[in-house]
Design a protein around this nucleic acid. Structure first.
Lengths: 337, 337
DNA sequence: GTGAAAGCGCTAACAC
DNA sequence: GTGTTAGCGCTTTCAC
């Protein structure tokens, strides 16, 4: 049986109130007493119950982290960053996969609330009517990461999707492409909308007419990527380049093109939003827009802990720059070494 | 402010004990009363405090999951499986990255204990002197996954590392290789030791002498892979094939070989333990020993929940079969389509 | 500077 | 069947 604060109090010959004060560094305790208490605690291998503390102070030392799917390497890196920050702050991380389901998201939010979490980091499935509203109304700090929430005024940390997308398309145009297809998430999510906007702007800035037939949007997963890659190869309007809006779409597109025997970059040049380690392992290596994922998570967590610690500064939005990493999949065959 | 059980009791005109019983499906409550309570709870949007419950029953509805690094795709899949199971059981998952540090592992275990977690799933950094001993002594259910713990008698779920490794090496031998290098984790961990043993057995069964110079062991990460790949290319004893003991080592080895301009499978045939999605995207595609990772996590979680629910059956060990997925990196050039 | 006592929200033992 | 009561292990007034 783990020992309790009472055991320590008895052993140190003081009251449990004093033990509490001594151990949590509260003022008005004599150094001698602190030492006694520390020693007693050590001998009894005492570790205060975080559960009891949570109940008493009406707030646990756990933060919730809601993402759509930990299997997506983008989120994996985010989780890692959040976990590191939490650990530094002696907080625990409660991991929740929403699977892009509003219902699962809602269920998890209720769970987190019942656990009295200190705060929540969320990459929400919904921009509007977000279940997070509950949290907000209960004054539980929330930080949106990667995806905005429009109906709840919360701190937000995301990558510059617009300029990232712009730089990718601009790069393709520089390489001589004018018929550029985009395979991306639906415009009803932050990421999809902004990346599409960047695409359009890049075209516009180079006086290339926007063509609806070159836009393929859907749920950003592998299957969507595959299906659209197929559609692209069979379309009467043949693009010479494809811009993939996230890593999963890239996997799908790439997989299909490889099976279909298409050559990259000769048949289609390719740029991916999100950079993956294995993009350097393929032939050709894959050009990508790199998001500072770890930094995204770190800053989001920092912001959350500021709020948890009582900050009342106005709601902030942090936008981090992306970086275009040019590799072989987007550079014309002649230019490949 | 979230409403409490008392609010519901008042509204339904019963005592809070009755509310508790009614809502948690305990016997001896009239259906009428149950209905009244349910309605009151619904109207007040009541969700029982899991924290208070945890304190009262001395056990939270959270399980701890300790892995070395969520960034490793192997663990990512494991986490996903565990989270799915936990979610089904209305449990939360508290995620801990140990970074292969015994100290971090110990710290997390203390934290989990202070959180009164219902159980712990762990891929431990240490086979002996495991900090998990604490948990065991406090009767907190533990299940070891992927890596054994030798000094604590706990349920264990892992892949058949020996036969997985054996099949990989056997396959390489079938392809005509006799000088096969192995790059793997140190033999002081379950995975490293068993995979090395499988390697040796395969050689022995084909009367190929074991050669110490072909064995490269270290911390199983990318850097180690790179360094050993370099050593291999410069070694006087040139292998014709390389067997990589896990996915990170493969990334390192592959990265180096690519940069060094080596051809696979001509210069070195390659087989990787762990299968990754992107192994089908490279040229050549990569032969791999696939572990049923999701299943590993699922079964481990199932076992844990059995224990949490009071099972006292003898300690179990579940070993899941691996599968050799033959691709281009291990088949001789002539045989590649 | 320290102790006594109340109470966070729930459940379980015991009455009736 | 249902209510009363105690108490899980802490923190935080309020005394002194």
């Amino acid at each position: 049986m783990p020992s309790t604060i009472k055991d320590v109090a008895r052993k140190a010959g003081v009251s449990s109130a004093t033990v509490s004060r001594a151990l949590s560094g509260k003022p008005h305790v004599r150094q001698v007493v602190i030492d006694q208490v520390r020693e007693a605690a050590l001998e009894l291998d005492f570790h205060p119950s975080r559960v009891a503390r949570s109940l008493r102070v009406q707030k646990s030392s756990i933060i919730g982290l809601i993402i759509s799917d930990i299997l997506n390497p983008f989120f994996t890196a985010l989780v890692r960053a959040v976990e590191d920050s939490a650990s530094r702050n002696e907080y625990g991380v409660f991991l929740c996969n929403s699977d892009e389901s509003v219902e699962k998201e809602r269920a998890y939010i209720e769970l987190l609330q019942a656990e009295n979490v200190a705060g929540v980091l969320i990459s929400s499935t919904q921009e509007n009517d977000s279940p997070s509203r509950r949290l907000f109304e209960d004054r539980i700090p929330i930080v949106a990461v990667d995806r905005r929430m429009l109906d709840v005024p919360v701190d937000t940390v995301l990558a510059d999707n617009f300029s990232g997308s712009y730089s990718a398309v601009d790069h393709l145009i520089q390489q001589g492409h004018t018929r550029i297809a985009i395979v991306a998430a639906q415009p009803n999510r932050t990421t999809g909308r902004e990346r599409l906007a960047g695409y359009r702007q890049a075209l516009a800035d180079h006086n290339i007419p926007f063509c609806d037939e070159l836009v393929y949007t859907g749920i950003p997963n592998r299957l969507t990527g595959r299906l659209y890659a197929k559609e692209i190869t069979q379309s009467p309007i043949q693009p010479t380049a494809i811009f993939c809006g996230n890593n999963l779409l890239t996997v799908g597109v790439l997989g299909y093109l490889k099976e279909a025997g298409c050559n990259i970059p000769e048949d289609y040049a390719l740029v991916s939003f999100d950079d993956m380690e294995w993009y350097t392992m393929t032939s050709p290596t894959i050009t990508a827009v790199r998001q500072p994922v770890y930094e995204l998570g770190r800053q989001a967590a920092d912001l959350l802990f500021e709020r948890i610690n009582g900050s009342v500064s106005p709601v902030k939005e942090i936008v981090l720059e992306t970086q275009l990493v040019v590799r072989q999949s987007s550079t014309s065959a002649r230019r490949i070494v």
